[in-house]
Write a protein that binds this DNA or RNA. Structure first.
Lengths: 223, 223
DNA sequence: TTGATAATACGTGGATACAAAAATACTTTT
DNA sequence: AAAAGTATTTTTGTATCCACGTATTATCAA
């Protein structure tokens, strides 16, 4: 089975890899604020290496959209505008819709039980109020994507989850009221059980598109 | 209007940018064969710079999937397996399907005429036998995508076109018999004229998925 | 001759120091 | 107060060096 996202932390080989992981983790957790400048020398000192591998890591982070690299003006933490956030959710909707459609024929009863276990774990994580609900939520979506058995598709979806992760955290930390996540995800499982691929695709699309507006209020209105 | 792909060549600012453009262009044209090793020093000497910006460019090319970077083993030109090719066309189908759906409301009569002009230009490029049919083809798809007015979506689709470009060239150069491209693309325009967004989305999806098998035979069967 | 192992050459990844170019901040002048 | 010019800081790129991993070749034993 292709790896679910987030990719399991294999022992880092190169310094660039370590810098990339370090920075990605920090950015996902929202340790740096959008617009904040990342100084290669500082980061390098932080993790005990020279500037070179850090600069290389910046390039990859920029490709991921986590960071903006402007010529002669260095590396700045990327922030999403409302439009960009909606766009990402539109893209997620079709990508994860495709993943669901492709995954369905591969899901047996055992896998359904696993998904329901993940649903419960997500529920518990949510009640404990901790923001590791976000991680559980990614696990749930990641599991379904993994069942599509499409490495590149999984990778692209995973990358989008990384970009929106800080906003998901802020959103969940800020909303004490129980929201409709449980039912939405249960509906996805139900749609998968129905055996109707196009219906399941549609349910996933709607689920994803329905969450965008809830996050939108935590995003800077424009740039 | 957001830029159509391929992105217009703005004057390169940094050396890394120049290296990236140089290598991307070479890879798109198929100047390097899959599996071939790219030695930083050689490339650097070729375009008159040191290894560092070249190494940085490698990272971006790797993110784009044009190149594979394995620790201590350097940079190798990426080749697609049949499975990967099909996967890319699956992803393209939903992404460009979304683009069509979003673009439709923005297309007026003037824009239809522009699309038909592009269709004719594609036809002529194809009859001249030259492989710049590929460029015209990208222009056509790029124009529609641009009308979706979604920068990230456009960027992702563009990246996929770049990856498959060498195979498109081989395919077209190898098929002297006139294929159904003209009708397929005319059908896309017709679907856009229909005003039915979901129908147009479906037509674009089918168009893209139908081309995958034709390219598949020019791809190494496995790795 | 063939297969395994050791020696060697090579390239990559990374560190460091330095130079050039650009952007930013700061004066000074009008 | 605005503009022009100067200084400083930061980024970017170069050059050089070294350690380590990989690949190739050479050597030796079966």
């Amino acid at each position: 089975m292709p790896a679910a996202f987030p990719a399991e932390p294999q022992m880092s080989a190169t310094a660039e890899e370590e810098a990339y992981r370090h920075l990605q983790r920090a950015l996902r957790l929202g340790r740096y604020k959008p617009g904040e400048r990342l100084i290669p020398e500082e980061i390098a000192a932080e993790i005990g290496m020279s500037r070179m591998p850090v600069r290389e890591a910046f390039r990859r982070l920029a490709s991921d959209g986590l960071v903006v690299l402007r010529p002669n003006r260095g590396c700045v933490v990327a922030g999403l505008t409302v439009d960009e956030l909606y766009e990402i959710f539109e893209i997620r909707s079709v990508l994860e819709g495709l993943a669901v459609r492709l995954a369905m024929p591969r899901i047996d009863e055992e896998e359904f039980e696993e998904l329901e276990r993940l649903l419960d774990r997500m529920e518990r994580a949510g009640q404990s109020g901790s923001s590791d609900w976000v991680v559980r939520h990614q696990e749930f979506h990641g599991r379904i994507c993994a069942l599509s058995w499409r490495p590149k598709l999984i990778h692209q979806i995973s990358a989008l989850h990384v970009v929106i992760e800080p906003y998901m955290r802020i959103w969940f930390d800020d909303c004490d009221k129980p929201h409709s996540a449980r039912e939405e995800h249960a509906a996805v499982i139900a749609a998968l059980r129905s055996g109707d691929e196009l219906h399941a695709e549609k349910v996933m699309q709607d689920h994803i598109l329905s969450t965008a507006p809830m996050l939108a209020e935590f995003v800077s209105p424009s740039r």
